[in-house]
Structure formats: structure tokens, C-alpha cells
Design a binder for these strands. Structure first.
Lengths: 225, 225
DNA sequence: ACAAAAGTGTTTTTTTTACACCCATGA
DNA sequence: TCATGGGTGTAAAAAAAACACTTTTGT
């Protein structure tokens, strides 16, 4: 009879004003000398908690954001994934059974950075947005792998649900296009992009326009609820 | 600290001579009166076994097939998923801790039915191929959901790896086309299908032909290894 | 000679791409 | 009046869909 721990790790992505895609990482001390390590926000799931609720709770405790749309993308269950020296050191400090196997379910979330107020949980001494190219190759456990797989999933499965969480309730088509460009990492043609959007019944034009911009104000659009 | 059981459930699909897609189900007694229930083949993962190996082991014990290509598609972790009366009855007979939470990772496999020799494992009293439309709406646990999600995944992610396991080493283009038609559940145009295949560098024409058929013998093709 | 499946190209339609100028606003 | 991003259509290219007859074999 195998008993093990179940955790959830969240690949939380957001945007900064500098138009860069950033991932939310937490910083953890891994020994008494205050050596630290970065990790994806994640924690053990509660006894009677389902996965999605657990993910939301964990994410909420780290980001103070509620009602985040989270999507499961893969489960990581290698028996060795918590066995590395650097990770054992941390586990010994914070877990009663550091040798217990932990499998983790990866969830992905896209959030509006402006609405995020850092709020580190117990074992996180810090929580920061890190530009993708700046992410350490030495994240806790197999978190580099999880991040990579999450990003791949995002690019392959990009959907309105995920996208809509990164935009204000009302947005311009240029904002939407920039999002797609950054997430897909390719430049899109403005006219073709708009042609496609106009066929999409989920994105609807409001009768409002941008205010106080030093150029022709753009129409605002919104996602159909 | 949450400790729980981890299982793997396999959505194993195959084809019969009647060109129908069938799923491999096992039959389990759920009480002493020999009332039974059907379920996807699945079992608990070993203490130090990784997920993919576990899936292969479990599948092998049920199908005696080795080196099956298995692909993870989703993880099911509702705390209620093993709490139904019908399932508790079975769990009490076979598990030491029937109330323990079980999360399960769904894997999908496509196999050649001809090569499958039924080989029920300990708690399976039978293992049979069941046509999709004939599958009970009352499978064990949340297996109807798992099956449904697996089939959806298959249709969305249909790839050479999965397909190639359903075909003999050498096959005709008509066989290949029939497979796609059944898996995608749509009719394909022969000429367009062949046009696409010819662009696909993974599928190569051998210099062999069918033997002893009462019509023009087809060329045999093979997957590049 | 007939039944059965194999094999093969062209046209039409649809989808995707490429591309450039005028507009409304605030400074 | 200038700088800034907003907004718009058309033509060319590529991809996908529609479609029917001849061939080879065993019986």
C-alpha cells in the first residue's frame, strides 16, 4: 500500500508594464544559514480538498487573488523528484516526512500583475515576478521542468479563458494583440488579427472608447460573459 | 500532512476485425454475492515506481503486452471519487484502507487487439473488449468520466505514436485511413488522405505488396523507426 | 467476365498571408 | 502641426475540399 503526499504547483504568469511575460516565483530558505532557492508557488493539498480548490487556495495564499482561472496541465510523479540534496535540505526543515514521495499536479494561471499584491506564505520568504529569461536553472525540485511544460502547454492551448484573465474588463484590440504576440512569441499582422477577432463571437465591441490618449482613441472590447 | 493512494487507470483502446473501436474493461466482483462491476484496468502505483513504468506494469499484468506506448492525459483527484456506495463495497473487500483518498492518473494506450491475450489480474475476474456504445454507464469510480476524457484527448491529440501501435509493422494506406476515420469519427477523402500521407516523412513506402487478395494488391507502408 | 479494393490529378473553394495609407486625439 | 497609435480592404498564395475513372488481382 503506497501512501504519498500530493502537492500542486502553479505556473503563474503575468505581465509587467514593460510588456514582458513574468512568472511568479517564491524564495525559500533551504538551511539555517539563509541560503535560498526559488520555486514555483506550490504546497500540499488538504485531506479533503479537491485539486482545483487546492490550487486556488494555495495560489490565493501567495497572491491574495481570488477566483483565478486555473487549468491542470500535467502531473509529475517521478519518485526522484524530491530526492536532490538541495531539496532534501528544505524538506527536512519544513516537512515531517521529508523522505515521503510527493507527486505534484501542475496548474497554469494567467493573472493581471497590477492586481497582484505580494503576500508570501509561511515558508516563502519572498514572492517575486521573474522575467522568463532570468529564471534560475536551479529551481526547487523539478520546477524548471514544470515551468517549461506549462509554457509549452500555454502556447499550444491558448484559449479565451486564459487570455481574458490578463486583460482588464474592457480592452483594446491592440492590447489583445500584444498579449497574443508575447504569449505565442511571434509577430502578428494587425489587419489579419482583427479580421480573425471579428469572426469571434466571444469578443464584443462596446460603444466606449479610450479616454485621454494622445492619439486616436481605440474602441473598447469585452469578453462575452 | 496528507497521505493518499496513487493509482493509474488506463484507457486501452483497440480494434476488432469488425472495424469497431473497443475499450478494454475488467470485471470485478463487488461483494460476496458475486455482483459485479466493470472498470478501466488500473491499480495502485508502487512505492518507488514512476508513473509511466507503473502504467506499463499494470497494463502488462492485464494484457501481457510489453512496451506499450502510454500517454498521460489527465489526473483525477476529486476527494469523492471513491466514496460512492458501489465502490466502497469493492474497496472494503480489496483494500486495507478503503476510506483512504485515491487520486488517479489517466493514461491512454492504443493496442493491436489481435496481439492481446486476456489475462485478468488478481481482482479482475474477467477482462473484455467492449464496443464504445456498449460501455456501461456505471463503471467503477469515475471511470466513465476518465474514459470520456481519454477519448476526447485522443481525438484532439491523435499522433503517429498512438496510431502506429494499432497497425501491423507493414500496412496499407487503406488500413491507415480506416483507422483515422474511426478514431476521428469522420469520413475522409481517399485522394486527399493519400496526398497528405505522401507529405509525411514518417510514413514510408516499402517495395512489398499485399499477397493473395482478390483485388489489386496494395503497396505496404511502414513507420520510420 | 465480374467483383473488389487500389491507385491516381485537376478544379474549386476556403483560408491564410502580405501589404500601406488616412484618421482622431493630446501635446 | 506633429507624434502617436487606431483603423481599414484587397490581391496573391497556400491549403483544403470535391470529385470519377482505370487498374490489378482472385474467383
Amino acid at each position: 500500500m503506497l501512501l504519498l503526499n500530493l502537492s500542486i504547483d502553479c505556473v503563474v504568469l503575468g505581465f509587467d508594464k514593460d510588456q514582458k511575460i513574468k512568472v511568479l516565483l517564491i524564495k525559500k530558505f533551504i538551511n539555517e544559514r539563509n541560503d535560498f532557492q526559488f520555486a514555483l508557488p506550490g504546497d500540499l493539498v488538504g485531506v479533503n480538498e479537491d485539486l482545483l480548490s487546492g490550487g486556488k487556495r494555495i495560489l490565493e495564499s501567495l497572491t491574495s487573488l481570488e477566483n483565478i482561472y486555473l487549468k491542470q496541465f500535467y502531473t509529475f510523479g517521478s519518485p526522484d523528484r524530491t530526492k536532490h540534496k538541495k531539496d532534501q535540505s528544505w524538506l527536512k526543515m519544513y516537512r515531517q516526512q521529508p523522505d515521503e514521495r510527493v507527486i505534484t499536479v501542475g496548474y497554469i494561471a494567467l493573472v493581471k500583475m497590477e492586481e497582484y499584491i505580494p503576500h508570501p506564505s509561511s515558508f516563502a520568504v519572498d514572492a517575486e515576478w521573474v522575467e522568463l529569461s532570468m529564471v534560475s536553472k536551479d529551481l526547487a525540485f523539478d520546477h524548471n521542468l514544470i515551468l517549461e511544460k506549462g509554457l509549452k502547454y500555454l502556447r499550444e492551448q491558448l484559449d479565451h479563458q486564459l487570455i481574458s484573465n490578463l486583460l482588464p474588463a474592457k480592452f483594446t484590440l491592440s492590447q489583445l494583440q500584444r498579449l497574443y504576440e508575447i504569449l505565442l512569441d511571434e509577430k502578428l499582422d494587425k489587419r489579419n488579427f482583427r479580421k480573425n477577432i471579428s469572426k469571434d463571437s466571444l469578443i464584443i465591441k462596446t460603444d466606449e472608447k479610450q479616454q485621454g490618449v494622445a492619439h486616436k482613441p481605440a474602441h473598447l472590447y469585452t469578453y462575452k460573459s
